[in-house]
Amino acid sequence: MDAILLQILNGLDKGSAYALIALGLTLIFGTLGVVNFAHGALFMIGAFCAVTLQRLLNLSFETVDETQKDFLGNPLKVKTPYVEAWFGPETGAAIIDWSVPLAILVAIPIMLLVGYVMERGLIKHFYKRPHADQILVTFGLAIVLQEIVKYFFGANPIQTPPPEALSGSIDLGVMVGFDPNAIIYPIWRLIYFAFATLIIGGIFAFLQFTTFGMVVRAGMADRETVGLLGINIDRRFTIMFGIAAAVAGLAGVMYGPLNPPNYHMGMDFLVLSFVVVVVGGMGSLPGAVLAGFLLGILESFASTTWATTTIPGINQIIIYLVAIIVLLTRPRGLMGRKGVMED
């Protein structure tokens, strides 16, 4: 039982990342009709917002310590971060320690801007082009973005650890009546799941309970009619693109402490996220979230020893297997709407 609960937790955690990325993809597809293959790159850029802030906070000045030697036997140059010099060692170290949560504040405006520039500068020119053209140009953009990141940050993964107070793991099992050490789970993974739930809830609330959201939903249902009412729906859709970019970016910022960011991380999630969108149903926001968590949990269970010994290789194909089964039985996906991508 404890092993099953652990895999459900892992699945929810993986599913959080899938759901957040797929939610953004669906928002863009539902509003602008664009298949955005650069969405994984937005996730990666978000993670590198945290890396950049961490590096900025660690900018240091050097002092020579004659008592220590470097690898060549020369006096050691000791680096002291400016924030520690300005705010004192303890406060400065605490600011650096909390760089990932602080990066959320930095990433929101940056990702909104990135999304705005991407949409206005490139993607809007492909609205009326076939989906194949959109896929090619956004995939090309993704490659350009990841190569830019690699140029500046290198190919190695870069650690962005969580704050000391939120690192490590807690004994969840004891809290729900299991034996001690039965269900030990990392704190930051629980935070990631809670964060994803909050963001997803926030997006749904925004679309459901605000006038802006109502207009966007109306535009998704019938763009022309909303336009005829004198509403500038294009501007709102551009804003939604920015919001979708911010969601992907925030997912990336918070993901960094789970697995160290590298320039390729967006591509690692891209294909999986598209499968999530298709399984959930093209254009369906609840479908994207449901499929994200569902596939995350199934993938976790497929990685267990029991599953891999029973069906060798199941851990590598489970998501695609589920996609095939869903599309054969429900061609529009779990919650797909009639008419979407069917013309």
Partner: peptide, 21 residues
Amino acid sequence: NTVKTPLASTDFSSYIAPVLN
């Protein structure tokens, strides 16, 4: 136990969790 993990794996949490028990 010896468990094979796909080369393309990026998150190993579902492989690490069974190690605990």
